[in-house]
C-alpha cells in the first residue's frame, strides 16, 4: 500500500512562513480534503510535499522514501497531481492531453503502446469523454475541460492523487460530477488529497477533513468531529450553523 507521509513540513518564502510544521498522512481508500481560507498555505503544503518547492524543514515520504530524492518520473508514477492553474499552451486533441498522463510510464504522444492506450481509454471512459476525444481542447466548455484534466490525472493510474481546487470555477452540477469521479477513483483503491473551497461539498465527500489556518494544520479528523460552528468561526472567520454535514452560512464575523 502506497502511503504519503508529510512530517513537520515547513515552507518559507523570504521571512514569512507559508507552511509551519505541518504533518499529514494519506493512504489509498481515503478522500482527504484540505480546508482553509485563502493564504492559509494549502497550495504551498501540497507543493512542498511533492518537492515542487523546497521545504525549509521537515520532509515528505512515499512508502518510506523521501520524495525529494525521487526523480520526477518515479514520483509521478505514484502520485498524480492536478495543479490549481491548468493552462493549455496549444489547442491539442483531448485524447493527447489525457495521454500526457502516461508520460511517467514512457508513453509518447502519437505512438502510445497498447498498455498506455488502454489506460487512456479507461480514463476517457471513466470521465465520459469518449465523444469528445478527437476534439481540440480549445473548443471545450469549462466543465468539459475540468473532466479532461481529471482524466489526464487518472490515466497515470497512480495509487495517489493530489488535486488543488479541481472544481474551481465550475457550476454546482459539474462540481458534483468531478467529485463523483474522484470518489469512484477512491472506491477503486486510490487515495486522494484535495483542496476545496466549498465546505459543504467537502463535508459530503470527504472521509477526513484537514483544517489549515495561517500555515498550520489546526485540526485533522472525520467530518463528524471536526466540522463545527466554532471551527468555521475560528478558521474562516464566518458565523455559521452546522447540522450534520449541512452548513448554513450567516455572514462574516
Amino acid at each position: 500500500m502506497t502511503e504519503l507521509r508529510i512530517t513537520d513540513l515547513t515552507v518559507e518564502a523570504g521571512k514569512s512562513f507559508l507552511v509551519r510544521e505541518a504533518s499529514l498522512d494519506l493512504i489509498p481508500g481515503e478522500l482527504v480534503v484540505l480546508l482553509g481560507p485563502n493564504g492559509a498555505g494549502k497550495t504551498s503544503l501540497l507543493r512542498g510535499a511533492l518537492g515542487l518547492i523546497a521545504p525549509t524543514r521537515g520532509e515528505s515520504s512515499l512508502d518510506g522514501s523521501i520524495i525529494a530524492n525521487l526523480s520526477p518520473m518515479q514520483r509521478a508514477r505514484q502520485i498524480a497531481y492536478l495543479p490549481q492553474i491548468r493552462p493549455l499552451a496549444w489547442p491539442n486533441r483531448v485524447r493527447d492531453v489525457v495521454a500526457l498522463g502516461r508520460f511517467s510510464h514512457g508513453g509518447t504522444l502519437g505512438k502510445l503502446g497498447d498498455h498506455d492506450a488502454e489506460a487512456v481509454d479507461r480514463a476517457i471512459a471513466a470521465c465520459d469523454l469518449k465523444h469528445l476525444q478527437d476534439r481540440g481542447t480549445h473548443t471545450l466548455s469549462g466543465g468539459e475541460l475540468a473532466r479532461v484534466h481529471c482524466a489526464r490525472a487518472f490515466a497515470t493510474e497512480a495509487p495517489l492523487l493530489i488535486a488543488d481546487e479541481p472544481t474551481a470555477a465550475l457550476d454546482p452540477r459539474h462540481q458534483f460530477r468531478i467529485l463523483d469521479l474522484i470518489k469512484a477513483y477512491v472506491e477503486d483503491g486510490g487515495g486522494a488529497l484535495l483542496v476545496l473551497h466549498d465546505i459543504g461539498l467537502a463535508a459530503r465527500y470527504a472521509s477526513r477533513l484537514v483544517w489549515m489556518k495561517q500555515g498550520r494544520i489546526v485540526a485533522d479528523g472525520p467530518v463528524a468531529t471536526t466540522l463545527t460552528a466554532e471551527r468555521l468561526a475560528d478558521v474562516y472567520g464566518v458565523a455559521a450553523q452546522v447540522e450534520g454535514t449541512r452548513i448554513i452560512m450567516d455572514g462574516a464575523l
Binding site: A76, R77, D96, F103, T156
Partner: peptide, 21 residues
C-alpha cells in the same frame, strides 16, 4: 523532444507528470 509535449500543460503540471524541468 518528448518533454516538449509535457510542457503543453504548463511547467507545474509538466513537472507533476514527471518532467525534469
Amino acid at each position: 523532444r518528448r518533454g516538449l509535449s509535457a510542457l503543453t500543460l504548463g511547467e507545474e503540471a509538466a513537472n507533476g507528470i514527471g518532467l525534469n524541468l
